[in-house]
Amino acid sequence: MYKTFAAVFLGVSLAASGASAVTIGFSQVGDEGDWRPAFSKDMQEEAKKMGIDLKFADAQGKQEDQLKAVRAFIAQRVDAIVIAPVVVTGWDQVLKEAKRANIPVFLADRDVDVTDKSLYVTRISADFSLEGKLAGAWLAQASKGTCDVVELQGTVGSAPAIERKKGFEAVLSQFPGMKIVKTQSGDFTTEGGKKVMEAFIKATDNLKGICASFAHNDNMQLGAIQAMKEAGLKPGKDVLMVSVDYVPAMKAALAKGEANASVELRSAIGKYIYPVVTDYLKNPKELPKWIVIPSDLHVAAGN
């Protein structure tokens, strides 16, 4: 809460100084993990580069803080509001208030569930399902369409876990020779990925007949790589390793040939978000409800 107030206060003082610049209020979820702080930092740096007056509010994972921040943005009459929602529900009221004040709202990253879709202009985010599809497509070509896969799922019920699995399975369904033979949740952590892979190694007699490991994020895959090495297997050679995120430690694993491919989840996405907002402010026209930020697949040198 203190942080929100501080951010709002800072925002007021900034607004007083830069009168002509476009003013955007950005309500961020919090600063958990590696990805989100990098995303916040990029939004602030990119705003500076583009001459945007950014009011940044960190909700510390609480929707009530986020609602307060958005209402503060409305009271300050910002030109546009960008929200990275903590949760999908409970947005109708505050979005109506923004609409009444004629302030367009854009969503970044996660989705919201509102009855009236006109309450926000568009959502700009990566497509988790596309990430799963890219991983699946890479695996299909690397294995020539025949592959028994073990899967390390993210936290049960989380959007990236559900969507990445869906996208991956959508590609696999096109290849009769490809199937997931074991799947378990490693909770998106290195520790979890390692434990699950240890159990898979025992359950499949040292990964006999297993051609690939697909992990919903790199941390779990890094744990799986450790488990395989401790069991005397060669990850990246005995088994194809494909995952999502492209974190620095995964870059190193790719360079060493212990992993084969990773789909990048970009954190530098300010350059995709701001142009949509500023273009809309210049020329308000109907936009598609979802603008997808492209995903890149990175492969190891030898592949």
Binding site: G33, T189, T190, E191, K194, N219, L222, G223, A249
Partner: peptide
């Protein structure tokens, strides 16, 4: 033991 196991420090999720 847990930290040396994955040889990383992950305060958010270790031993949750």
């Amino acid at each position: 033991i847990l930290t040396a196991d994955t040889h990383t420090s992950d305060p958010v999720s270790v031993a949750l």
